[in-house]
Computed example of a mutant assay.
Amino acid sequence: MTAAPRTVGVVGGGRMGAGIAQSFATAGSDVVVVESGREAAEAALERVAGGLRRAAERGRLDEPVERVLERVTVTASVDDLPAGADLVVEAVPEDAALKARMLAAAEKAVGDRAVLATNTSSLSVTELASALSRPERFLGMHFFNPVPASALVEVVVTGQTAEDTVRAALEWTHALGKRDVVVKDSPGFASSRLGVALGLEAIRMVEEGVAEPEAIDTAMTLGYKHPMGPLRLTDLVGLDVRLAIAEYLHVTLGERFAPPRLLREKVARGELGRKTGQGFYTWRE
């Protein structure tokens, strides 16, 4: 049986970062979550605790919530990452400059043997590696939302990533009970590139009055056996996140990824999906 890393740092404690922290803590790792400021750090800890409570309610947790939560600590400074960390996962917003700064700071805080990973869903892992002194110890580990329930991690490899770095990432992925797909670094990788293409076309269909969101989603779930339709998935991912990825793919891959007008309008109105209560669907907790 594969073993989880002993110590993991997670830079960013939002929905994705908290889910990553929860998954590693559940697998037995000691986890340090970094957020910007004490208040944000405490909110990140509560996200992890909330996720653990939901897992326990659904019978998906083998230990008491409190025991797992003892393995999670939060801090407001990247400098507080443990020097002996096996793995640091960066999970800050999709801003290349911010990610590069956080990764460079994390690299200085931990030892030479640590593996650094970015959770970016579309940005160039190769370009992010240029901010690091040890690019051979760096790759992409693209987790999916919600992290604890998702079965997949997309492992993104650059031309500089060492083979033992990839082996370690695959072992840790399996220790979480997840499956991996290994892809070479390219815009959008495999998952975002295909997923966004489908989502954008579905948005264009709504924009053109072809069908209502629920009808489009039902066509894909019943007709093509997708577990979730592209518009409901867009609401879960966040319309702002989808727009940012589409804009990046538009620049790097061409006109076929041009964001639809309807997507821009919804984001401008603050209709970002489940997190704001309104996207292509109305969400009530």
Rank of each mutant, 00 (worst) to 15 (best):
P187G: 05
G188F: 03
F189A: 06
F189H: 02
A190Y: 12
S191M: 07
S192I: 05
R193C: 12
R193T: 11
L194F: 11
L194R: 12
G195P: 07
V196R: 03
V196G: 03
V196W: 00
A197N: 03
A197Y: 06
L198T: 12
G199C: 15
G199K: 01
G199M: 15
E201A: 04
E201T: 05
E201G: 10
M205N: 02
V206D: 05
V206Q: 00
V206I: 11
E208V: 01
E208F: 00
G209D: 03
G209C: 06
G209N: 07
V210M: 07
A211G: 11
E214Q: 06
A215F: 00
A215R: 14
I216V: 12
D217T: 00
T218K: 15
A219M: 14
A219W: 04
M220K: 06
M220C: 11
M220A: 10
T221M: 04
L222K: 14
L222Q: 13
Y224V: 07
Y224S: 08
K225I: 02
K225D: 08
K225P: 00
H226D: 02
P227I: 08
P227L: 10
P227A: 09
P227T: 06
M228Y: 03
G229R: 02
P230H: 05
L233T: 12
T234Q: 06
D235A: 10
L236Q: 12
L236G: 08
V237Q: 01
G238R: 08
G238V: 07
L239T: 04
L239K: 11
D240C: 05
D240T: 07
V241P: 01
R242Q: 06
R242H: 07
R242S: 10
R242K: 08
R242F: 10
R242G: 08
L243V: 09
L243Y: 11
A244K: 13
A244I: 07
A244H: 04
A246W: 08
E247Y: 02
E247W: 01
Y248S: 00
H250S: 08
V251Y: 02
T252K: 15
T252Q: 14
T252M: 10
T252W: 01
L253A: 14
L253N: 10
L253K: 14
G254T: 13
G254W: 12
G254E: 09
R256L: 15
F257R: 13
F257A: 04
A258G: 02
P259M: 05
P259A: 05
P259Y: 10
P260C: 12
R261E: 12
L262V: 08
L262W: 09
L263Q: 13
K266H: 11
A268P: 14
R269G: 13
G270A: 13
G270T: 15
E271V: 14
